[in-house]
Design a protein around this nucleic acid. Structure first.
Lengths: 358, 358
DNA sequence: CTGTTAGCGCGTTCAA
DNA sequence: TTGAACGCGCTAACAG
């Protein structure tokens, strides 16, 4: 059913290794045989068996990709970025969705190693402490790059979360908001970094950090964002702006704000993170910080390919992509009544259309 | 560096095949040896080499997935659905992004076949005529399922596009709109089906189909939707509602409508297709038709797994998932002034939160 | 230039 | 209950 090298060889009454050499365009094969081989191979529909090839070459041209949640746009965009550089370098992606389950992550990584992937890109679901499997990874020597969640002494590519928190908060301050709250993400690196940036920006501008102004939600949970905003608005001395750790949180918050009858951005400022698609088409165009999701994927893919081919520095050094502020109407600006003044100021620095579609 | 069966065997001074048998939990191995083997295997960090295993078993436990554009949410949601059932059945996904390039699709499918994938799920970039590679697919006997784009005599899972077009248009008619235009997608099956449903609905309600009311845009192109709507509004007898073939098109159209100062839904009705995330949070919550994207992926995955394991009917029969109308504010309803009456009517049938997150 | 030979790591006979 | 031998399809020495 499947044509093998041997079938081509027998049809031509020559040896397997000659066929092989001809198909590899090796120079030590006569033009005539090469043509005969190519012709017959095509005629019989020969396709090289990459499994057999991998067994001997010890390379699969496959990169394992491990993500915690395929249904979140962050990860699919990262995967898209990875695929772009990986496929250009001749690699395919073997995809694993761990659904935020650390034990599943461990077992998936093991089967990926068993699959002889040439390298791995992992967005880990593990808490910072329990990094068991990576000993295994190190032992086998499979090159791997972490994205989104960082661990010591590993190759890492991610957004610069402190910067993200810092520029988002600073932006709100500069727009004249005075009581800035933060809806933070769960207890993972990225959320911690954004929180840190938030507090730093407040300090830098001599504003105090109030515990009550910091509430938590899941990154992808609009309802949670809504609740969190509701809590904040119920405070005795309620805030006049929110830096949300993600766009979905911000979108949820927006609902609460609007239900409360608050005018945005006049009464209340709002900014998120992630630059989700359609953020600019929301009932109030949402200011956000772009983390360069595809860029993270591309960098990670490029780094891994370099690691595989030995072109990269095997010393682990983290790469942080610079975030970009995308001010839109939801935070621009307190005091403006509406309309064109804001719109024109907002359009210029908005890189969305340029970068989101590449 | 990598532990092999042989290494475990030598460490234990027993034969490879005994180790193998022990690891497979075959009953004809004594409890004692089994434990010794398991212990040593764990100690040495043995992971079965799936490449070698595949070479002999002729199965890889890998499903090839071919999509034309990873950056479109439709395909990533389908992939998510596929992964859900595939991983549950013990399969991994080998992902290929063809970037809408038919020749790339052909070559990718070939390397996937060469990779000995156990099956393929393909969202084809090919125009209906040029189905070259599928002879190859048929010849090799690799089971495959098509999604999104249909071809004769193949296993297919997709949305019911005629239904989609029909119920969307019918909905606009029932809401009292009278001059209903259609921004159709490009010349592919899905767009043709939706167009057909559109014309059928008009006929059914004794409304005429006007050529000028049908303009074209790319599915994922908001700017194109915007232009298309602009054209429609420039018509002498301009429409009072648009059925857009996708949500992004509808979102683009929405911009044009608002720039024109039209009140939605009072002056103008709008409905899209796809149930993109955040559609309900847009400046006007967007009515849409849910195609069940993840459902398509799940069905396709389940069908392929059945095909691989021989449980499925090898006769090709297309599966069309039933679309669901999600009426939101953008089309509900002409004559209503605003607010709560609409909102409450709209919330009940909105399945988004239920289905989008599974 | 072409053919022969020897593995890659594992699974599956069949003997012992 | 265990071990030896063979083959999956291909690549890479080396021999002719």
């Amino acid at each position: 059913m499947r044509t093998r090298l041997k079938d081509v060889a027998e049809a031509l009454k020559i040896s397997v290794s000659t066929v092989n050499a001809a198909l590899q365009n090796r120079p030590d094969i006569s033009q005539k045989t090469r043509e005969r081989v190519l012709g017959k191979a095509r005629e019989l529909g020969y396709l090289p068996n990459r499994v057999a090839r991998s067994l001997v070459t010890q390379r699969t041209q496959v990169i394992g990709v491990v993500v915690p949640d395929l249904s979140r746009s962050f990860f699919t965009e990262v995967v898209t970025g990875i695929d772009e550089v990986a496929s250009a370098a001749g690699y395919h992606l073997l995809l694993c969705n761990t659904r935020e389950d650390p034990s599943r992550e461990d077992s998936e990584i093991q089967t990926l190693i068993g699959s002889q992937v040439d390298g791995l890109i992992i967005a880990s679901a593990h808490a910072p402490s329990e990094n068991e499997v990576w000993r295994e990874l190190r032992r086998t020597g499979v090159p791997f790059v972490l994205v989104d969640r960082f661990f010591r002494d590993t190759h890492f590519v991610g957004g610069d979360d402190e910067q993200i928190g810092f520029i988002a908060t600073k932006h709100l301050i500069q727009q004249g908001y005075e009581r800035i709250a933060h809806i933070r993400g769960p207890n993972v690196m990225t959320a911690i970094g954004r929180l840190k940036g938030y507090t730093q920006a407040l300090h830098r501008h001599n504003m105090r950090v109030r515990r009550a102004y910091i509430v938590e939600a899941q990154y992808h949970d609009e309802a949670g964002g809504s609740e969190a905003a509701y809590k904040l608005l119920s405070l005795p001395d309620s805030p006049d702006a929110i830096f949300a750790a993600s766009d979905p949180i911000a979108i949820g918050a927006l609902e609460s704000l609007q239900q409360r009858g608050l005018r945005i951005p006049e009464d209340f400022g709002l900014i998120g993170v992630g630059n989700v698609r359609y953020g600019q088409y929301l009932s109030v165009p949402l200011s956000t910080v772009d983390q360069q999701r595809q860029g993270i994927g591309k960098k990670a893919g490029a780094m891994l390919v370099d690691l595989i081919t030995g072109r990269a520095n095997p010393r682990a050094l983290p790469i942080l992509l610079e975030p970009r502020l995308l001010p839109r109407r939801s935070s621009c600006c307190k005091g403006y009544v509406s309309g064109s003044a804001v719109a024109s100021r907002v359009n210029a620095p908005d890189h969305q259309s340029v970068d989101a579609n590449r």
